[in-house]
Write a protein that binds this DNA or RNA. Structure first.
Length: 294
DNA sequence: CCGGACTCCTGGTTGC
DNA sequence: TGCAACCAGGAGTCCG
């Protein structure tokens, strides 16, 4: 279940390997991984083959690799990757295969030579697509894929507007976990880090956003950043020097979780049992004593 | 605007 | 032991 830290680990791992590399060939083994590509797989292959890749970018859980334009006046395009629930982008040498590879992209890098990207995805909730890049409304020089245009900046983005976020929270009539998972409000947070940040800030997942005091909202945002930053630091430590095993799941369960999946276990703060409740078709894990609606 | 239901999907786990 | 039912959830869509 890759969230912001896992996706950033993938982005950072891909950066030195794909930047300035040229796509020599593309194989699509499962068309379902192109669900979000506007066209048949032949179109995906045609538009990607021969293109040169630029530095990978990320917003929230979306990752994209801008492609060098064929003509200077062409509409800028990018290869957009979403890992969904189980997606991985594995950076390999030219002969390594991986089980459940849905799409393979062969690259030639001017310094590193031939490389291969295996897009592996067990559950096929993830996808690859070629998309056009458009301006972001709040920054004329920054481009994002059209599929990402509605996604809010993430809390580790230096242009994330804390005050605007608090103002939108106060105006909404919804509950806080729903808001944290709303990628148009704040991006990059999934079920695991939502539960972890709420636990750390002692906020109940059904706390109405409008009644969350400003100090508590500030604390919650700080805990969101702390949880994401800590996970990022732990996930970013397992790089292999020669061939980076860029793995969306790496380090995921290595870090200690205080609430997520801990139902029945003692709350690390008060010792009372963590409870799991069903919410939004997923589990919400929390301490009923530490985290109360108020 | 809001929330609930539904869709996509497969492999590990649970239950009979 | 074997097999079916269940469960996990990110994101989009549709509907009331």
């Amino acid at each position: 279940m890759p969230e912001l830290p896992e996706v950033e680990v993938v982005r950072a791992g891909l950066e030195p390997a794909v930047t300035a590399a040229t796509v020599s060939s593309v194989q699509v083994y499962d068309e379902r991984s192109l669900r979000r590509h506007p066209g048949p797989s032949e179109d995906f292959i045609d538009r990607l083959t021969g293109r040169r890749m630029l530095a990978p970018q990320r917003r929230g859980k979306f990752l994209w690799i801008p492609l060098s334009p064929i003509q200077p006046d062409n509409t800028p395009e990018a290869l957009v990757v979403h890992l969904g629930m189980s997606g991985q982008v594995l950076l390999r040498d030219r002969v390594t295969d991986d089980l459940r590879t849905r799409i393979r992209i062969e690259l030639l890098h001017p310094e590193h030579g031939p490389l291969r990207l295996n897009f592996v995805d067990q559950r096929i909730f993830g996808s690859m697509a070629i998309d056009t890049l458009v301006q972001t409304p709040d920054h004329p020089l920054q481009l994002v894929p059209t599929a990402v245009a509605h996604i809010a900046r993430d809390p580790l983005d230096e242009r994330f507007d804390d005050a605007a976020f608090f103002a939108r929270l106060a105006k909404k009539s919804t509950t806080i976990k729903r808001a944290l998972l709303d990628q148009t409000l704040i991006s990059g947070i999934g079920n695991i880090y939502a539960d972890e940040a709420l636990w750390a800030a002692k906020v109940h997942y059904e706390q109405p956003t409008a009644s969350l005091t400003r100090p508590r909202a500030k604390l919650l945002l700080a805990e969101v950043r702390a949880v994401l930053t800590k996970a990022l630091a732990e996930g970013g430590t397992s790089f292999d020097a020669q061939y980076l095993n860029v793995n969306g799941q790496s380090g995921y369960f290595a870090h200690s979780l205080n609430a997520y999946g801990q139902q029945g276990e003692p709350c690390p703060r008060c010792g009372r049992p963590i409870v799991r409740e069903s919410f939004m078709n997923r589990g919400s894990h929390f301490c009923p004593y530490c985290q109360r609606v108020r």
